[in-house]
Design a protein around this nucleic acid. Structure first.
Length: 291
DNA sequence: CGGTTACCCTGGATGC
DNA sequence: TGCATCCAGGGTAACC
């Protein structure tokens, strides 16, 4: 589930509680999520450790332990998320950060168990692991770098945007929203965008992601919630994702839902008027009786 | 290289 | 009400 804005929201929620604090320890409730580390080893490393930093890298949550105790990396994937000691213990707790003294906890929950928890000995090892499967962060990537990376793939622009190796952080929701904002059809070939189109795309990425972060991400059904259990408010101010048949906010044309090549079974939403396969006509309005 | 399938899991919504 | 089916924001491996 969580994409960059949701993970950023989680990190901002968890950081003030954990950063600078000394853990009593961590408890692994579900070793199934562990990747390359045993529950015993992880718990040993974290016991009594001080949390130096809580950061986001792409869709990863990176918890750095002080004093050479290593780095814990949590990938929420589809249904993972953090909770700050809510009144009632949530379902599907997979790992717990236990704080000293007060007895407070931070829970990592994941009903589908698709998430991953890893541990690296130091920042370099974590960085190597990240770099093996990720490009630059979507909020950091430069325009020329983005252009060069898109030039290297003949896929559609949407699959390319969602490829973490091209740039890190964008998933299905925000790919749709970013492409709408950039007025690009999701099936346009990544390597055939004009410099102007790449420029629009590069502008749209941080605008959409930062709007979503400001709204604390996207919630629907019972999925993602903030660390306090509140819904993110982005869906409701978005343009196309999950808005099949509803009017495009720019031109009123009904939004189309489809499936595109290179994206397995994930749905794609776009405005067939604002996002043409041919040259997009920016700013054009389709309204009865005018123009 | 690009694309598809299968798979990792669970639970909510929908349809009969 | 019960049961089957489809769907879901992510990601990887195997294969054509």
């Amino acid at each position: 589930m969580p994409e960059l804005p949701e993970v950023e929201t989680m990190v901002r929620g968890v950081r003030p509680v954990l950063a600078g604090r000394t853990l009593r320890g961590v408890r692994v409730q579900d070793p199934f999520l562990l990747d390359g580390v045993s529950a015993e080893e992880l718990e040993d490393r974290a016991r009594g450790a001080k949390v130096e930093a809580v950061e986001r890298r792409g869709k990863w949550v990176v918890v750095t332990l002080a004093g050479q105790r290593g780095i814990i990396v949590i990938q929420p994937r589809m249904t993972g998320g953090f909770w700050l000691v809510p009144p009632a213990r949530p379902d599907h707790v997979r790992m717990t950060f236990e704080l000293g003294g007060s007895g407070e906890s931070v829970w990592f929950c994941d009903n589908r168990r698709l998430g991953k928890i890893a541990w690296y000995a130091d920042r370099e090892a974590a960085e190597r692991a990240f770099s093996r499967s990720h490009g630059p962060d979507a909020l950091q990537i430069g325009r020329d770098d983005l252009a060069a990376r898109l030039k290297r793939t003949q896929r559609g622009i949407k699959p390319a945007l969602m490829d973490q190796k091209v740039l890190a952080g964008i998933g299905n929701i925000y790919a749709d929203e970013i492409l709408f904002r950039a007025r690009l059809h999701p099936e346009r070939r990544a390597d055939r965008l004009t410099a102007d189109e790449v420029g629009r795309l590069h502008e749209a990425i941080p605008i959409v992601l930062n709007e979503a972060i400001a709204a604390e991400g996207s919630s629907f059904d019972r999925n993602y919630r903030t660390v306090l259990g509140e819904e993110g408010g982005f869906l409701g101010q978005n343009a196309v994702h999950r808005r099949k048949g509803l009017p495009c906010p720019a031109c009123g044309t009904p939004i189309v839902k489809t499936r595109i090549a290179g994206l397995v079974g994930r749905p794609t939403y776009y405005c067939p008027h604002c996002q043409r396969k041919g040259p997009a006509r920016i700013g054009e309005r389709r309204r009865k009786g005018s123009k």
